[in-house]
Simulated scan of single mutants.
Amino acid sequence: MPSLRIKRVYEPPAPDDGVRILVDRLWPRGLRKDAAALDYWCKDIAPSPELRKWFDHREDRFDEFKQRYRLELKSNPALAEFRKLTKGKATLLYAAHDEKINHAVVLAEYMRALNAKKR
């Protein structure tokens, strides 16, 4: 059974992270590539630039953002490859300050729901 976690990319790597995947379209500010300890950088699984700019990490837009991002994910050609990367233990990394209101939360929920349907 796959294990999918999320955490800020600025947190130090941990032995139980599994595959470390950055899911941001833009590289995190102030972070050296070697410090990130990434296995993959999946830019194309992130929200479109238009959606990201519209959302602007505003709490009042989060419910609408979730709906729009899920629609993007349904037709995202990068999803098939991303599913392969997250088959085992994986940690989705993001740079946003808010741990509850960000696209990685939505992506993790979406992937868990997909995996539950495939059982």
Rank of each mutant, 00 (worst) to 15 (best):
1 M>N: 13
3 S>L: 13
3 S>Y: 12
5 R>N: 15
6 I>N: 01
7 K>L: 08
8 R>I: 03
9 V>E: 04
9 V>Q: 05
9 V>S: 08
9 V>H: 03
10 Y>M: 07
10 Y>T: 05
11 E>K: 07
12 P>A: 14
13 P>Q: 12
13 P>K: 13
14 A>N: 12
14 A>C: 13
17 D>N: 05
19 V>I: 10
19 V>W: 02
20 R>T: 05
22 L>I: 08
22 L>H: 03
22 L>E: 03
23 V>C: 04
28 P>Q: 14
28 P>I: 03
29 R>I: 15
30 G>H: 03
33 K>L: 13
33 K>M: 13
35 A>M: 10
35 A>W: 10
36 A>N: 10
36 A>H: 05
36 A>Y: 07
37 A>T: 12
39 D>V: 06
39 D>K: 10
39 D>M: 10
40 Y>C: 14
41 W>K: 04
41 W>L: 02
41 W>S: 04
42 C>V: 07
43 K>S: 07
43 K>I: 06
43 K>T: 11
44 D>H: 05
44 D>N: 09
44 D>M: 04
45 I>T: 02
45 I>K: 02
46 A>K: 03
47 P>A: 05
47 P>C: 02
47 P>F: 00
48 S>N: 04
48 S>W: 01
48 S>G: 15
49 P>A: 08
49 P>S: 09
50 E>I: 05
50 E>D: 06
50 E>H: 05
51 L>F: 04
51 L>R: 00
52 R>C: 00
52 R>P: 01
52 R>K: 05
53 K>R: 14
53 K>H: 15
53 K>E: 14
58 R>F: 10
59 E>K: 13
62 F>V: 04
62 F>L: 06
63 D>I: 04
64 E>W: 04
64 E>L: 12
65 F>M: 08
65 F>S: 02
66 K>Q: 08
66 K>N: 02
66 K>C: 06
70 R>K: 06
70 R>P: 01
72 E>C: 09
72 E>F: 00
72 E>D: 11
74 K>F: 11
75 S>F: 09
75 S>P: 07
76 N>K: 03
77 P>D: 07
77 P>C: 06
79 L>K: 12
79 L>R: 13
80 A>I: 08
81 E>K: 11
81 E>L: 10
82 F>M: 11
84 K>L: 13
84 K>D: 09
85 L>N: 15
87 K>T: 10
88 G>M: 04
88 G>I: 06
89 K>N: 10
90 A>K: 01
91 T>M: 00
93 L>N: 03
94 Y>S: 00
96 A>Y: 07
96 A>E: 10
97 H>L: 08
98 D>I: 09
98 D>S: 09
98 D>H: 15
100 K>W: 05
100 K>R: 12
101 I>Y: 11
101 I>A: 08
102 N>Y: 01
102 N>R: 06
102 N>E: 06
104 A>V: 02
105 V>T: 05
106 V>P: 00
107 L>K: 00
108 A>W: 09
108 A>V: 15
109 E>K: 02
109 E>C: 03
110 Y>L: 04
110 Y>V: 03
111 M>C: 15
111 M>D: 02
112 R>C: 13
112 R>N: 15
113 A>C: 12
113 A>Q: 15
113 A>E: 10
114 L>I: 07
114 L>D: 14
115 N>D: 14
117 K>W: 11
119 R>Q: 11
